[in-house]
Design a protein around this nucleic acid. Structure first.
Lengths: 348, 348
DNA sequence: CTGCTCATTGAGAGCGCTCTCAGTAATCTC
DNA sequence: GAGATTACTGAGAGCGCTCTCAATGAGCAG
């Protein structure tokens, strides 16, 4: 079943059927209606390959996660939230989404190569790629537009991206701990190849500086966005007796809570803890986790919306979107009473 | 840049370039090599739309999650694991993956309609669709092949699917509790529109029956695969004083642990708990969760592999794949000593 | 009635590829 | 050395759509 068949059945030409399907204005109302009747009767869908061939547009975007290690499998729904946001907007705007998940192996490079060469996508969204990723430069020579989620460390002025004000958010997080009377505030960073991690470190320093507190290198530990490494980082930190701790991500904070329990440090009494992201587990830990929420779904949605605008030439490169964050005060910082453990928020 | 251009540059015909790209055997070795050189020099990629148009194959499969509510956002990485499995195999076999996430709204139906009509996919994988989903019958009239993850309740003989032996697994889970001396063993079911839930209930009953234990309707509560409802179900169950509890999913078990803590029931001392799935949080709860592991990544991988075989006519419908489950004994059942809470398994 | 405008429609080229079929030159057979 | 076989290559049709351009006919002005 193709346009020709429909045309024959409707007693019009192929061109007219095409016009009807594409909502061209010049078709006579009666003709239009009649053609639609036939199309519906046959449950006809135009062949997307043929259409893409002539229009040079597939209405497919790609969502690329260069490496899954950091954000994908680490005790949280970070990626799922982003995905949900992307999914919503693609649906709304009648696009489809190709998903490309990288690996932490050589194949990753080969996969990215394939992705970059794939001409089936009109554009792509790239999630949290480290600045030293081998594909970075390759991407810049791409034909189609792309949008980065999280500010890239290099080429930030020339690329489009969606992010949050990490510096400001980290300042507020740190200030929150300061406002609770904490003075030896530690910081565990995320992967320093990602701008988020660097910016949060910067924000932490800014806040200390502004409060007249010293910046103690012993209280800063470099880490990655995962629980296991957060646990280890916390263990390295504890001998220096911090009374507050700002973790660059909630998964890191999970490791911190775990480490604190292991060595008998009470949270929040002995140690006031704040995370970043507000992934779902943050409200279920014991104690529940105070955190700086970033709007993950909105990040995905904004990136998608921006990408499609770029594809459809409603906007042009580069565009920078900065979304708001919000301090979510729960138990781990000590500003709230202990309460009932992880039952407080979502439960009966 | 197209085939014609490459042909001109290489001094051969379009047909020969096509042969080289598609690895046709009849091309002279020298010609082949020369053409490849030109292709690489130009970094040429054939236009997928043109190719799809004539081959009637896109090498794109769809992954369809009819409604996200159950498995998507509920405190676990069930879907992520399946996704990882699908992703791995599509990568290996040089396919791309279109992801379609449903919603719990009217749009869901419209979305599924769109998916079913989308002719850009060679086939699709459908995750855990309830048997009463409005799209179910529509799917059966589809042109391309599809594979269900989890056995469909209807048409199971005529459709291809990948699942685990839920009945047998539930029997073993229940028997494990029995072997620990528990006699008043309760069951909280999953969504009864999904065969997994029904089968697990059946397995639970089988095990009780085989052990000569009565099947007490008071000890069976119908539920869905989420923590909140698991919590409520547990609360309804507690007045009947169970000493063992088999939850049809780990997320339900999370709710059970939470409810038990809320009312002061000690797990495993007062109540021996076992879950199903082994999602990531299962090893991080307090106490850690004993559970029947199902190989989620393998489910995704097997479904993908099967689908592609179906597409490429290596196999024909219907195919049924049943994967193995494994009992993971942790703390919540009482077979293990209490230990250090959720630090035991994955941590330093 | 003639010539014009305007609304609507159809014919046909062409998007970039695959694949069949025929052609050519080299090699083999006897 | 003639005919048959083999190895390779090119020409060209056609996949199903979009889009330009020309054609048609109705309506209208004069």
């Amino acid at each position: 079943m193709n346009l020709e068949d429909i045309a024959k059945k409707a007693g019009v030409s192929r061109a007219t059927v095409s016009r009807v399907i594409n909502d061209a204005p010049e078709v006579n109302a009666k003709t239009r209606e009649h053609v639609w009747t036939v199309i519906h009767a046959e449950n006809f869908q135009p062949n997307p390959a043929a259409r893409a061939l002539v229009r040079r547009r597939t209405e497919i975007i790609g969502l690329v996660v260069p490496t899954t290690e950091n954000i994908f499998f680490t005790d949280n729904n970070y990626f799922m939230q982003v995905l949900a946001g992307v999914s919503r907007v693609t649906r709304e705007r009648d696009y489809a989404m190709l998903l490309w998940l990288g690996e932490q192996t050589d194949n990753d490079h080969r996969m990215m190569q394939k992705v970059a060469n794939n001409r089936a996508m009109d554009g792509m969204i790239i999630v949290s790629m480290t600045h030293d990723h081998p594909m970075f430069k390759r991407l810049l020579s791409l034909d189609g537009p792309f949008v980065m989620i999280d500010r890239p460390l290099e080429y930030a002025e020339t690329l489009s991206y969606v992010t949050v004000d990490n510096i400001g958010a980290a300042e507020r997080a740190t200030e929150h701990l300061i406002s609770l009377g904490r003075r030896r505030i530690a910081h565990i960073t995320g992967d320093m190849g990602i701008s988020d991690a660097r910016d949060r470190l910067q924000g932490y320093k800014n806040a200390l500086h502004r409060a007249g507190l010293p910046i103690d290198p012993d209280l800063i530990v470099e880490c990655h966005f995962n629980r296991q490494m957060g646990y280890e980082a916390a263990m390295r930190l504890f001998p220096f007796k911090p009374d507050g701790l700002f973790a660059a991500g909630d998964t890191i904070a999970l490791g911190v809570l775990q480490a604190a329990r292991a060595v008998g440090i009470r949270v929040p009494d002995d140690l006031s803890v704040i995370g970043f992201d507000d992934v779902d587990v943050a409200s279920q830990t014991m104690p529940t986790l105070t955190t700086m929420r970033q709007p993950l779904q909105s990040k995905g949605a904004a990136a998608t919306s921006l990408l499609i605008d770029l594809i459809e030439k409603r906007l042009e490169n580069p565009q920078h979107v900065v979304l708001d964050t919000e301090l979510i005060v729960r138990q781990s910082c000590g500003a709230n009473p202990p309460g009932l453990g992880y039952l407080n928020e979502k439960s009966a």
